[in-house]
Design a protein around this nucleic acid. Structure first.
Lengths: 241, 241
DNA sequence: CACGGCCCGGTTGTAGACAATTACAAGCTA
DNA sequence: TAGCTTGTAATTGTCTACAACCGGGCCGTG
């Protein structure tokens, strides 16, 4: 097993020597964020700078820059002179996020009804058809819930054509949502209903009915939140929306 | 005027040697942010790392960490291998921010009506009385517009008791709003009306009427945005809200 | 005279070494 | 034995030096 290059993928993440356009700090940032969001690094894990630096094959400089950026995204918690650990998201914090999503994505849906092009809406409808087929076939439902419906929400958010809004949701909140989903390996217990709600939203967009789109989106997210609250007061967590 | 210490305020920012609890990078971060927001560094200014480092009396390491954090707050724009410059906020971007504020602060007002303590609301009412007196005396109206009414909005935001929401508004958007105000040295042309609107919001809070508080706050911010749009299509900008 | 390639100064990106602070543990004292 | 003090190891914070990359000016050529 004597490897000339560091190409062996024994550890979850080792090499990022190959150079694209981005800088080392950028790549470490992406890599670390992915490891956190996908649950390779569990919440509360202590992150030693020296260890991480050698693990990713970079010096501590770029690593620290990546840490700083992840800290401002609330994915890492840092205490001066003490250390960095992976942020542990609490249930109340998650509920807060869903409340904010309700306001923000409701707004996004309203703007999307106004600004999305016909082509974008048609593409979104196509996506929904794919989801319905996957749903019918019972084929990898987990995938649908994990990434599929995020695509749905992403597209509507970007359809708002409001860069500030897009940045706040996709660049900020959604990392936490995704992290939560991976943490609790949650598969919604109401996929049928969620899918119906998605379809209703698309229909509102097709009708260019902004108020209706906002109403339905808010209701959709609100129900997802209520679902989380219900499930978690009993045992394990679950979400969609 | 030969000063033994670096107490002379000739340059906008020179010394931060005195050590409190925080780390160097943190202090540089605060200092830089302040210089940007208050307009000591004008939008579009090229920021050389070496020059800045010597200006603030630190090495490039802490400086770069501060830059990275300001970049994720959208106060700096960075291009790899090229350089960093102060973000120049465009009018469309500002309008976007006000649209988001409308949704977010409307939500904050609704939550504030639910969660603010009686003491907090009373204190807010006191603040408003102070503003009205300043207003009556025509005494430093600029101050009222610059910082005074921000206090008003800050308190309601924090009254929401939703940490995510607070972070997004006060930790994110409001820096841009403040920067805009300093840039255009804007004094609202409708202080009377803005003050009346503030009072209406407080009354809704006192009545614990969340829906009314949200409605009034949204209307308040919407009017401020319309005011900006009107003024800027003609000549200089102005804002409140 | 215009255009393209090359060289050079300067800036940013990265690495490694040094200093400062914290946390833990062993030893001393009451 | 309990509590405090102090010493030590390890980690983080900071600095200096080196390497890689970009931009602008110069020269040669069509």
């Amino acid at each position: 097993m004597s490897a000339p290059h560091q190409n062996t993928a024994a550890e979850p993440s080792l090499d990022l020597i190959e150079s694209d356009g981005r800088t080392l700090a950028d790549r470490v940032f992406s890599r670390l964020q992915d490891d956190i969001v996908r649950g390779h690094l569990l919440p509360g894990t202590k992150l030693g700078e020296t260890e991480l630096a050698s693990r990713y094959g970079v010096s501590r400089g770029p690593l620290r820059e990546a840490i700083r950026r992840l800290e401002s995204r609330k994915l890492l918690e840092r205490v001066p002179h003490v250390g960095t650990r992976v942020a542990s998201l609490s249930l109340p914090a998650l509920i807060e996020i869903y409340h904010v999503r309700e306001a923000l994505e409701g707004m996004a849906a309203r703007l999307a009804a106004q600004f999305m092009t016909d082509a974008e809406i048609a593409s979104l409808a196509d996506l929904l058809v794919q989801h319905e087929q996957q749903q019918d076939l019972k084929e990898d439902v987990a995938y649908f819930q994990r990434e599929g419906d995020l695509d749905f929400h992403y597209r509507i958010i970007q359809g708002s054509h409001n860069e500030t809004l897009i940045q706040m949701l996709i660049g900020g909140l959604y990392h936490m949502v995704r992290m939560y989903r991976y943490q609790f390996s949650t598969v919604t217990n109401r996929p049928q209903r969620a899918l119906r709600e998605h379809r209703g939203i698309v229909e509102a967009l097709e009708a260019r009915d902004g108020e209706m789109a906002e109403l339905l989106m808010r209701r959709h997210i609100s129900r997802a939140r209520q679902n989380i609250e219900q499930q978690t007061t009993q045992s394990a967590g679950t979400a969609d929306g």
